[in-house]
Structure formats: C-alpha cells, structure tokens
C-alpha cells in the first residue's frame, strides 16, 4: 500500500455525501471517486465534491490504486457489494446494518476472512462525543454494574429516500434504526443477549408499507435488561432525538441530545435550536475532531495502517443484527425469541 490511502465510495446519497466530507478531512486519505447507478447524477455529485465519477462498480474493483471501498448504498445491497469488494482485495467499510439476514452477514464475514482484508461496519454511535463520554464513564465504573438500560432514537420518517419504507430493502425501523442502540448497549454491557421481546407498530402514518415504531426489550445473560424504542413515525415537526439512560448499582447516567442546546436562534419565521446532534456534520459547525464520522473513518484507517481489527468488525456487528432480527421475529409471532437465532 502506498503512503496515501485511496478510497472509493459507493452511493452518493445522504451517507455517501457525509462520508466523503469526513474522508476529505482525514490526513493521508484521498477520495478517488464515487459510484451510483445513475451516471449523470453521479457525475453531477462528483463534480460538487471535486472527485471522479466511476461509470461502473467493476471499474472501482479493477482499480489497483483503490485500497478502500466504502459502501453507502441501500441496505439490501450491502452484502453483495461487500463480498465483491473483499474478493477484489479491497478493505471494506460498510454502513450499518451490514446485511438483512444472518446468512448474508455470514457470507460477508467469510469473504473478509478469506481475503484477509479489513471489514468494518459503520456503527457511528460509538464515535459520537456524548456516547463516547458515556462509554468512558462506564469504564471508570462511575455507576457500578449496569442493571437496566433504556434508549430512544426517533424522529420523522427518513423521507429523503423511498426505499426505507420497503421493509424488504431496509429491514424496517427495528433493524435500520434500533441497531445503533442495540450495538451500543451490547458493547457496554460486556454480556450477550439471551432473549428479545418486541412490538413493532405499523401504519402509524397513512403509508401502509412501513414498519413504524419498534419497542424492543432485551434480556442479557447476566440479568441486564434493555429497552429500546426506535421510531421513524414521529410527526414532521419532531426533532431527531436520541436518549440513553443507564441505571447501575452506584448511580445513573442519562443523555438526551435535545437538552444541551448551545445556540437558540429566534427569527420572525421560526425558532431554530442548534443542538450539536441535530445538525448536519459540517466541519464549520462541528469542528472535525468532534465529528463522529471523521472519528469512525479515522479508526478504520488506523486499523488498516496498524493491521488491527476494527472494533465493529463483521462478527461484532452480526451480534447486533441478530438481536434486531429477533425483534422482528418476536413482533411477528407475538412471543419472546431466544438467541442465538438459527441461520
């Protein structure tokens, strides 16, 4: 590998654009180009970012200069693209969820093992400054042993892209969105999930194809219980909100992204609250050492350079996927689901 790490990004949507901004802030990384199926849109986007538009995925896979393929396409394509890129000898970072079935997750893990390339799933919550602070406090045993955890993640429907509304493509809110908190809580719990009981309400809004709100109860092997509520059915005026509460033997940790509001702006038209987590991740507003995507991708770069395993590799990420899939199943059958799931 040359001094510089060359990156190609698949997808120029919300995440593709966000990742490219972050990649361009990292020393020693070059975003060589981007690919999407619609070449004219890809070209237009690439021009804005000052990068190349690749006309096909194969051109990326065949490009010997490219070290990293960053997959920011819709979830149902992740496994297929990841396997292809790994087989082509690329390091792969793929947006969460890594796949929509355990079979596809295993296929990806297997391809990574076989190729010897790095595989990281982008569980960005671990790199949010406030969640990092929580992790540090837990490690410092500020609240002793954690016995109960509750998390909320929600806002209006991710209306920028219609495929989220198709459960077959996105996994629905229980897989797509709850997985952030599932991963985080499982990470800090240092235990494994044993049982999942969930309810997923559909049709909260008029569009009947959506899984809308998931309420998920998880029981871990050591007796920790977790409750995660994930929603993309809150009204359009509802700000994107993240909450976490950990109840431990020595105290409580609580986080709410709506309460630290460093800037409130009142104009004749509206009231804008500039809370850090509700802002787009622009370097001007969010200085880059704080930017979670900058930190996330930097971690991956460090792992490549030092030949270390990313903290959210395929196996770690599979655990979270398994819990989310169990939640969907539990909601379907109306019963708790024991883990592990059969593949």
């Amino acid at each position: 590998m040359a001094d510089k790490i060359h990156v190609a990004v698949l997808g120029y949507g919300f995440m593709g654009s966000t990742h490219i901004d972050a990649w361009q802030m990292i020393n020693g990384c070059i975003v060589k180009g981007v690919w999407g199926r619609d070449f004219s849109k890809t070209k237009q986007f690439a021009a804005e970012k000052g990068i190349r538009a690749f006309p096909s995925l194969n051109e990326i896979l065949d490009d010997r200069e490219i070290d990293v393929v960053d997959i920011c396409t819709p979830t149902y394509t992740h496994a297929e693209y990841a396997v292809q890129a790994l087989k082509a000898g690329k390091h792969v970072i793929v947006e969460k969820p890594m796949a929509l079935s355990l079979r596809d997750a295993d296929r990806t893990i297997h391809a990574a093992d076989k190729s010897g390339m790095k595989l990281m799933v982008a569980h960005v919550l671990r790199f949010f400054p406030d969640y990092m602070q929580v992790k540090k406090m837990v490690e410092e045993e500020k609240i002793g042993e954690i016995c109960q955890a509750r998390a909320f993640r929600g806002g209006p429907f991710p209306a920028w892209s219609p495929w989220f509304g198709d459960v077959v493509k996105s996994g629905g809110v229980a897989v797509d969105t709850a997985i952030h908190d599932v991963d985080f809580i499982t990470w800090i719990s240092s235990s494994t999930a044993h049982r999942v009981y969930a309810k997923i309400t559909r049709n909260v809004n008029s569009d009947s194809s959506k899984y809308d709100i998931a309420v998920i109860n998880i029981r871990y092997g050591d007796g920790l219980i977790a409750f995660i509520e994930a929603s993309w059915a809150h009204p359009p005026s509802f700000p994107f909100t993240m909450k976490l509460e950990l109840d431990g033997t020595k105290g409580v940790i609580a986080l709410d992204n709506q309460s630290p509001v460093p800037i409130s702006l009142y104009t004749k038209d509206a009231n804008h609250r500039y809370a850090p987590e509700s802002l787009p991740w622009k370097p001007m507003i969010h200085p880059f050492p704080l930017d979670p995507f900058y930190r996330e991708l930097s971690h991956f770069v460090d792992c490549i350079r030092r030949d270390e395993n990313p903290m959210t590799d395929g196996r770690v990420s599979r655990r979270s996927l398994e819990i989310c899939l169990a939640a969907v199943k539990s909601s379907e059958i109306g019963k708790p689901v024991n883990l592990p799931l059969e593949v």
């Binding site: 050591d222 920790l224 219980i225 033997t249 708790p336």
Partner: peptide, 11 residues
Amino acid sequence: VYTEIGKNVNK
C-alpha cells in the same frame, strides 16, 4: 402483558 425483570441495582 409481558415483563422482563432485571438484576437489582440494590443487591
């Protein structure tokens, strides 16, 4: 009704 009871914070 479905209930999960966690390990106690107060042992």
